[in-house]
């Protein structure tokens, strides 16, 4: 699994139609603001401060980014009250940019005026015995063995390969492939581009669609699924981004054929 050049790839200003004005798609340094409870994650864009997410735990639908790295923010400005001083973006997707950036190092102290006005999903220390969100179903054996093809989609962060969230998406595929049992596994890799609010287009690394697809083959075989025939292809040409749902093409589709 080899990556291509790792610098962010900007294409020329997009020719696409002007996107929804509430969209906020940008690359910036994340900012941490401490509170009396869990820290908030913020980012500035075009002179405004936006709230990205809270620290919770691994189960969070939106996991915080990293200081030391810029973050690609793909969100929509909401009308909800500010949180930690920032305008909430909902929904929002965050992708950590792989290349380190030491200038992203802003950790703000807690201030009473920015303390949370609600109970966070989990405190900064031990939980009350459960994950903060119920979004990570533990893989189980399929309730019923399917006789028709089964399709799955793995999601990726921008420019990303598999990550800590992948096991929860991939384990059900493995379970079903064994239960079926699948005779053929069809895997299609994709890559995307992202239209930023300033009109620029951010391209995922060339060849990423192939690498994503081939990595999934390695993962499934590595987990012991060696019996089926694998059919692998990829679509490396990213569609024209629209700034609205560009994340949808950061994916690998898997079809299990009985």
């Amino acid at each position: 699994m080899k990556a291509g050049p790792l610098l962010l790839l900007f294409a020329a200003t997009a020719q696409a139609a002007q996107p929804d004005p509430s969209l906020r798609n940008f690359v910036a340094c994340p900012i941490v603001r401490d509170t009396a409870s869990v820290p908030c994650w913020l980012a500035e864009y075009d002179g405004e401060l936006y709230f990205l997410t809270l620290q919770t735990d691994v189960s969070a639908p939106v996991n915080p980014p990293w200081l030391g790295h810029r973050v690609l923010v793909e969100g929509r400005r909401s009308d909800k009250p500010r949180i930690c001083g920032g305008i909430p973006l909902e929904p929002v997707r965050l992708s950590v940019i792989a290349e380190p950036d030491a200038s992203c190092n802003q950790l703000l102290p807690a201030e009473d005026r920015y303390n949370l006005t609600f109970e966070p999903p989990r405190p900064p220390g031990p939980s009350a015995g459960r994950l903060a969100f119920n979004t990570l179903p533990m893989p189980t054996q399929p309730a019923a063995i399917k006789k028709e093809p089964q399709r799955y989609t793995l999601d990726y962060y921008f420019d990303g390969m598999v990550n800590f969230k992948t096991p929860f998406q991939l384990a059900p595929v493995l379970d079903m492939a064994r239960a079926m049992p699948a005779t053929r596994v069809e895997i299609v890799g994709y890559r995307s581009a992202a239209l930023l609010s300033n009109g620029k287009v951010l391209q995922e690394q060339p060849d990423l669609a192939r690498r994503r697809a081939e990595q999934v083959v390695e993962l499934l075989k590595g987990a012991g699924l060696t019996a089926p025939q694998y059919q692998v292809r990829w679509v490396d040409a990213s569609p024209v981004p629209n700034g609205t749902d560009d994340y949808r093409n950061r994916k690998v589709e898997i079809t299990l054929q009985p």
Partner: peptide, 24 residues
């Protein structure tokens, strides 16, 4: 319960808690 900022620790800060994370 004593929180502190856990930072730049591979396979902790990279698994959904953010970097840094205020934990124990």
């Amino acid at each position: 319960f004593r929180t502190f900022w856990i930072r730049d620790s591979m396979h902790l800060n990279s698994v959904g808690l953010g970097n840094p994370t205020k934990r124990t």
